[in-house]
Design a protein around this nucleic acid. Sequence first.
DNA 1: TGGGCGATTGTCT
DNA 2: GACAATCGCCCAA
Length: 205
Amino acid sequence: MFDREALSLPAVEVAPLLLGSLLSVDSPEGRVVLRISEVEAYHGAQDPGSHAFRGRTARNAVMFGEAGHLYTYFTYGMHTCANVVCATEGTASGCLLRAGEIVEGVEVARSRRASSRVDADLARGPGRLCVALGITLADGGADLASSRVRLELARQPSPYETSARTGVSGAGGTDDFPWRFLIPGDPTVSPYKRHVPKRRNTSLG
DNA sequence: TGGGCGATTGTCT
DNA sequence: GACAATCGCCCAA
């Protein structure tokens, strides 16, 4: 079921509800359904890891809007990442979808993710997840209750673990924000990687 | 108006 | 284990 009221809680409280939930995406190639196994919470202007840390901009406006919508963004010049918008309007809160298991439409996902040797890698990582599901920037702002991207919350909460967020630079990636939620032992959970400072001009020195 | 950098991934060693 | 690829956003001036 889709429950906008449940999604209107802060991202930290919504994240556990998303684990084990189903995200389905319809396209001409067919439907792909993902069972979510890993998410990260980003909440409020006080969260140094959030895109909304420096306030509202045209790019992150969707995160300030109504819960239950999709916030997509483009990063590293090539990757799309998807978030479920949480909390009430005016509060920037969202859960980044990091990984999951394809439970329907595996053939379609495989055709989009030709480089994946095993099915567990099809949606292991936020960029891969979007490719496998066919989510693009054009899906940003979509209502997860009525668009081609739909969210079905798990009937029963999954057991979960928390840890520091992956790949987040600065204070937001420390243990002060253990806002990464995952289903322990799930083969589709992405490997933990602490943020690596950007290496540029490495020839110096 | 210009420059630096990012909620990453695939490939090569 | 290490690095290149690649482009839009955001800050500073």
